[in-house]
Simulated scan of single mutants.
Amino acid sequence: MSALVHDFPFDPAYGFTLPELLDVAPPPAPDDFDAFWRDRWDAAARVTPEPWVGPLVEERTDGRVYEVSYASASGRCGGWLVLPPEGEPVRHGFVIGHGYGGRDGVGDALPLPLPGSAALLPCVTGMPVRGLRAEVPSSAERHVLHGIGDRDSYVIGECVADLWGAASALTELAPGLAGRGRLGYLGESFGGGLGALALPWDERFGAAALTVPTFGHHPLRVTLPCVGSGEAVRGVLRAGSGDVAARVMGVLGYFDAAVAAGRVGVPVLCAPALFDPAVPPPGQFAVFNGLGGERELFVLSAGHFGFAGEAEERGRLAGVVEAFFGRWLGARG
């Protein structure tokens, strides 16, 4: 498509062509990256989810929506549960992440990619409206910095645990979904980055779709201006001493979605964008390029930016997502 007209003081394509984006390799991993995440997963897996399901919120032809809450390694999380229409059995399951603004309902998550599906849509730690915590900032610019001085206190780790907790709650509510490879994951932007970090360690997920994923290639990302949460991280690095910058970059190494992607063994459909003022495209493509298993690419013209033809492009992506999960999860229902 022709160049997008914008008024940002930087180029949201960052001068990269598609072939150049496809050459962006993930950065090196910390030596104990795998051990760190396996320990986090082990702790999360020991939590009994204790799901609570509220009254019916909305009934649609493509599903019934309920409020839900569950226990996570980070505390109690809220969200929404989607079940198939009355009388239809649960054959498939999805955990659906959200962007860096939280969610106040199921939004455009319905219809789900496969018929006969249940889904849990969590609000992760600190995020509106059902993940709010008194001690955790809810704005993206402050949330992304919460606990960033230490890998064990960084809030992003708690958010990843919330996705694992959502899977535990969903499989307890729909026991037929329990087992290896029975769940799908969907996540966009913030939810895409969290998904890449969560997937390698949880064998309950059998396929995933990550759209404009964030947290990819932090060493490169912090060199690129943006209007998203990454700019808040850049601000800390600019304002801090050399010791502060080194400590923050050390922590970010454990939360790099492109590094985690290399550990993902299940099929992933990745939809990065060529132009994105909030999540720089080189980081998005680093996630796709790093994927360690079967992978599929759908290139978006832009992310976090409206343009002529966006609705049609998103419609095509929805069809690709449906076909993708039909191939990889459909036969397991």
Rank of each mutant, 00 (worst) to 15 (best):
F325V: 05
W164Y: 06
E20C: 05
F324R: 02
G262W: 02
L21N: 04
W41C: 15
D7F: 13
E158V: 07
L121N: 00
H217W: 08
T171K: 01
V248C: 04
L170V: 06
V155I: 14
G102F: 06
T17K: 09
P280I: 02
F16L: 10
V47D: 03
G306T: 12
G79T: 03
A323Y: 09
R91D: 09
V268Q: 00
M249V: 05
V5S: 14
P219T: 10
V236G: 07
V90P: 00
P277Q: 03
W201Y: 12
Y254W: 12
G230M: 01
L183I: 11
G292E: 08
L199D: 01
P128K: 14
R247I: 12
G206F: 00
V244M: 13
A73T: 05
H146T: 08
L194K: 03
V155H: 01
G165T: 08
D11N: 12
Y70P: 01
E59K: 11
R263L: 15
C77L: 15
Y100G: 07
V160F: 02
T211Y: 11
D23T: 14
C123F: 04
V129K: 14
P27E: 00
G193T: 11
A260D: 07
I96T: 04
V136D: 00
R182W: 05
H143S: 06
P19W: 08
F10M: 13
M1T: 13
A302Y: 02
L297I: 12
D152V: 10
R151I: 06
